[in-house]
């Protein structure tokens, strides 16, 4: 039986769409036939990482320009779930914020990538078609 799912979404570069995208991720977790773990927890984690990735794209990579767009692609196979968030801005310095350790709790900013790294199995940020893509993978098997 085929279990592959591919979802592509494009939203304006505005934070008002965070809830919509986060909930799509959360709902997806409940539809994954191949996943044996806790779907409630997976759904919450997908909501969080999609929200954080979108905020990075909107505020940092696309410099909060409301006329730009953010493109999201979610691919599910039997083995893993891959989320790609594309921006078409100048990007952000992933290495500056890619610390594996927890940021100082009294910092007001700089937790987003740490949270994504903590909840996903692998995270990469690279150039793609004149913009950038944040790739986040979660093993399902």
């Amino acid at each position: 039986m085929k279990n592959q799912i591919e979802i592509e979404i494009t939203v304006p570069n505005q934070t008002r769409y965070l809830s919509l995208i986060g909930k799509i991720g959360e709902n997806m977790a409940h539809e994954l036939g191949c996943f044996q773990g806790n779907r409630e927890t997976l759904g919450q984690h997908l909501n969080v990482v999609l929200t954080e990735a979108l905020v990075n794209a909107i505020k940092h990579a696309n410099a909060a320009d409301p006329d730009k767009e953010v493109h999201i692609r979610i691919s599910v196979s039997d083995k893993d779930l891959l989320i790609r968030v594309y921006d078409n801005g100048q990007g952000f310095d992933f290495n500056l914020v890619s610390r594996a350790t927890c940021p100082d709790p009294l910092n007001e900013q700089g937790r987003g990538i740490y949270i994504i790294r903590s909840l996903m199995d692998s995270v990469e940020y690279k150039k793609s078609n004149g913009g950038n893509v944040l790739e986040m993978k979660k093993r399902l098997g």
Partner: peptide
């Protein structure tokens, strides 16, 4: 649901 921005505001 709370994200890093929400947490940042609480820290502020």
């Amino acid at each position: 649901f709370v994200d890093s921005s929400g947490l940042g505001v609480l820290v502020s």
